[in-house]
Amino acid sequence: MSTEQQTATPMVEVRNVHKRFGNLEVLKGINLTVDRGKIISIIGPSGSGKSTLLRSVNNLEVIDDGVILLDGVQVNRPDMKGMAFERHINHIRQNMGMVFQHFNLFPHMSTIDNVTLAPRKLKGMDKKAARELGMEQLERVGLAEKADVFPNWLSGGQKQRVAIARALAMKPKVMLFDEATSALDPELVEEVNQVMRSLADEHMTMLIVTHEMSFARDVSDWALFMDGGVVVEESAPDKLFSNPDQERTRNFLQKHLENNK
């Protein structure tokens, strides 16, 4: 692929995506573009559909209509069935790092094994090379000294940093963060935010669903406000957070401010 094409193709593209849970339509025609090296934040109240949207990007939620592209390759493939789709999606997911609210580290494996499992088993990396790669990733999140510790001995903030390292070890094209700091005690939020900032400095492409307004404002290139399954408003973060056009956005931010007093 030429450099010209690389800059032209967005890393993630979401086109007119619809998702229903039974009779409830939770995504009502979402469009979203994440360019290479950019950071997009999605904010909105609980039940707005923002997590569902993020989970749809790597097909943890199967969308009912629309198209999702990763680096020009279609993620959802309604034309594919069974094992063919399984192979397709497993391959796609290796290029997307996902970080969950509840960390979901594998408790039966040491920290380093959590990080190296996928490179070893999916990329066939030998043990020594995988350990080197794993230590690199743990250093990146400041936890190299915890390599041989089991997750249950770690604090919430440390767990989430290991989860980030685990996702980074697959050298993903994009990182998806699903309320990565929502389950953390307030004093542990900053260490995770710092790791995410350092990824931003390295120009990692990121799609972030968050409740951390000031963090989203600082770090993002673009911000979306979702409510009721639609994107109500999107703009540069400075404008969205300080001077939004829409009444609903203003109300949400106002409420959020009051709750955090």
């Binding site: 391959h91 997911r93 290796q94 999916l122 996702a167």
Partner: peptide, 24 residues
């Protein structure tokens, strides 16, 4: 969440069961 975390890394259904679910 354990199943989803493994799938999100790119492991298939049966490998997730083998490496993640069964050992726990």
């Amino acid at each position: 969440g354990q199943y989803e975390a493994s799938r999100s890394l790119g492991f298939g259904h049966w490998r997730t069961i083998l490496y993640i679910i069964v050992p726990q």
